[in-house]
């Protein structure tokens, strides 16, 4: 199955309201999935005989803080997780999107939570560690959620838009 609209309908049949919407205006069309069911949708996409999205290429997190650039879709801050999938068997590509609050329960410092997809695609283990490290998303059920690029005792999540560089790190001036 190559057409994103067909895939969207197939997913909607199976997961009903958990599949939020289909966006076709973008260069790469995407399907938005409710955050709690991303792993289940992942298993379905990987194993269903006419989908077989066995490769997870990339997970990207994008931060939209509640501020400077007002636009109609930006309802006061959100984080987006974008999953790029490939089916080697059918040569098709798919983009999934999950929208999260920037902080859990809107309490700054409490990381937003989303189920891990590492049981579906083992490559997600490292991608999710990277997102946890740089963007501050907590992946529930992840086998080994540690920082990966920054040192273990680094504070904050550097790719967040409101991140402020610390003045020093173990006596090394950073500014």
């Amino acid at each position: 199955m190559r057409d994103v609209t067909q895939i969207f309908h197939k997913l909607s049949e199976r997961f009903a309201e958990k599949i939020v919407r289909l966006e076709t205006q973008n260069v790469d069309p995407w399907i938005e999935v409710e955050s709690t069911s991303i792993a289940l949708v992942g298993f379905f996409l990987r194993d269903e005989a006419d989908l077989l999205f066995r490769m997870l290429n990339c997970i990207t997190a994008v931060d939209y803080p509640p501020s400077k650039i007002p636009d109609e879709t930006n309802d006061w801050g959100r984080l987006e997780l974008i999953y790029h999938l490939t089916s080697l068997d059918y040569g098709s590509r798919l983009v999934l999107k999950v929208v999260l609050p920037r902080w859990k329960d809107n309490v700054p410092g409490r990381l937003p939570e989303v189920p891990t997809v590492s049981p579906v695609w083992p490559t997600a283990t490292w991608h999710e560690r990277e997102i946890f490290d740089l963007m501050g998303v907590y992946f529930v059920g992840h086998p080994d959620l540690r920082r990966i690029l920054c040192p273990e005792d680094w504070e904050g999540h550097p790719l967040r838009k409101d991140y402020e560089m610390p003045r020093e790190y173990h006596g090394i001036p950073l500014k």
């Binding site: 790469d28 990339c58 990207t60 994008v62 650039i69 790029h84």
Partner: peptide
């Protein structure tokens, strides 16, 4: 405004770039 992702076949494998325009 929009998002684009593209992978190319580099010597070491599929190098992907993702860009969000605003």
């Amino acid at each position: 405004k929009g998002e684009a992702y593209l992978e190319t076949e580099c010597p070491r494998g599929q190098m992907g770039f993702f860009v969000v325009g605003r």
